[in-house]
Structures are given as C-alpha cells and as structure tokens.
C-alpha cells in the first residue's frame, strides 16, 4: 500500500478521483464500479481486489444507487468518515450540476417543436432500452431454474401491472420471502450436519 503524504492530500485526491469518475461515467452502477476498481485498485493501490469485489456485492445488495453505495464504502475504507463524505460529494456533484442545468432549460426546451419531436422519438428508444434490459435480467432469473424465484417474478408483475399494488409492499414481501428461505436453508444445513 502506498502511503500518501498527508491526510488533506489524500482527501483531495479521493474527492477529485470520485468527481472525475462520476462526471464521465455513462450507463449505470456497474460501469462506475469498474472505473472505481481501475482507479483505486489498479492505479492508486488503496484497496485490494478481493475487497473491491465484496464492496461491489455490498453496494448492489444495499438500498439506493449503486454508485453512491460504492462511494460510501470506498470512502470509509480509504479515509474513514471524512473520506466517506468527500467520496459521496464527489459522486453526486456532477449529476446534480448537469441535471440542474437541464431542468432549468427543460420548460423552454419542451415547448419547442423540434425538441419535442426529438424527445418523442427518444422516448420510443428509451422504452426499447428498458425492455431490452428486462429481457436480459429476466433470462438470468429463468436460468436459476428456481420455482420460487419464478413465482415471485410472475406474482410481482401481476400485482404491480394489473392490480396497482404499492411497489414498496412488493419489495418488502419479496425480501421477507428471502429471509424465510435463508432461515430454512440454514436450518436444513444445520440438521444435515
């Protein structure tokens, strides 16, 4: 592990690395985690590879945006509480600035005929992008060949799309099933021993 000369310098470096990664990463949490690994594992050697993998699993399985979660984990690991604060700031400042600028122009933009037509076309594209992602994710669930998981997927879809059940209840129910399954497997494992 390299020991950077001073704490202030370390925090500055962490902040600007995160800012840079966040500002230039298009396309979701996994992409940004890859960039963080390149920066903090391969380039700066602040974190080892195994730890970064565990952090990825944690960032994914926790509530909230993956990028923000990863920034929290990396920040704590590199420089404690202060590290966490600067890493999170670095991570959220670029999208906040970009979206502030866009939302200020949006009202003027959206009434413009050319912009409206372009956005309308892009909406068709975004529907395709989302349903493409759904197909890939759905195929992964099917590959697991788990009847419970399949049932959860079908039930959740019917509940939300046809019956307008609150999204939060659906997530809580699925999480609860996961806890019960984990306890069941633990008990079965315990008896087998």
């Amino acid at each position: 592990m390299e020991q950077p000369p001073s704490r202030a310098k370390l925090l500055t470096k962490l902040f600007f690395s995160m800012l840079y990664i966040s500002a230039f990463t298009f396309g979701g949490g996994f992409v940004i985690i890859t960039f963080m690994k390149q920066k903090f594992v391969d380039e700066l050697h602040w974190i080892d590879e195994q730890e970064m993998l565990d952090m990825t699993a944690l960032a994914q399985s926790s509530p909230g945006a993956i990028a923000v979660n990863a920034a929290i984990l990396v920040g704590w690991r590199v420089a404690g509480f202060a590290g966490m604060v600067v890493a999170v700031l670095g991570c959220i400042i670029p999208p906040m600035v970009t979206l502030s600028a866009i939302s200020l122009c949006y009202a003027a933009f959206a009434t413009n005929r050319y912009v409206a037509l372009t956005l309308k076309g892009m909406q068709a594209g975004v529907a395709a992008v989302i349903l493409d992602v759904v197909c890939s994710l759905g195929a992964n669930v099917l590959k697991m060949k788990s009847a419970v998981h399949l049932a959860i997927m079908v039930a959740a879809f019917v509940a939300t799309f046809f019956f307008d059940v609150n999204v939060i209840y659906i997530i809580l129910a699925a999480g609860l099933i996961g806890v019960v399954l984990a306890m069941y497997h633990k008990r079965k494992g315990g008896l087998a021993k």
């Binding site: 994914q60 399985s61 989302i130 349903l131 992602v133 759904v134 994710l137 759905g138 669930v141 697991m144 419970v148 998981h149 399949l150 959860i152 997927m153 079908v154 039930a155 959740a156 879809f157 939300t160 799309f161 999204v167 659906i170 997530i171 129910a173 699925a174 999480g175 099933i177 996961g178 806890v179 399954l181 984990a182 497997h185």
Partner: peptide, 16 residues
C-alpha cells in the same frame, strides 16, 4: 439470499 429473492421482484417491477 434476501437479494436472490428480491431480484425477480425487481425485474418484474422494471418490466411493468
């Protein structure tokens, strides 16, 4: 394990 059960539900929500 909890994540394993959440994932199918999340996929369904995104599909919807």
């Amino acid at each position: 394990s909890v994540l394993g059960s959440l994932r199918p539900a999340v996929v369904a929500l995104i599909a919807s």
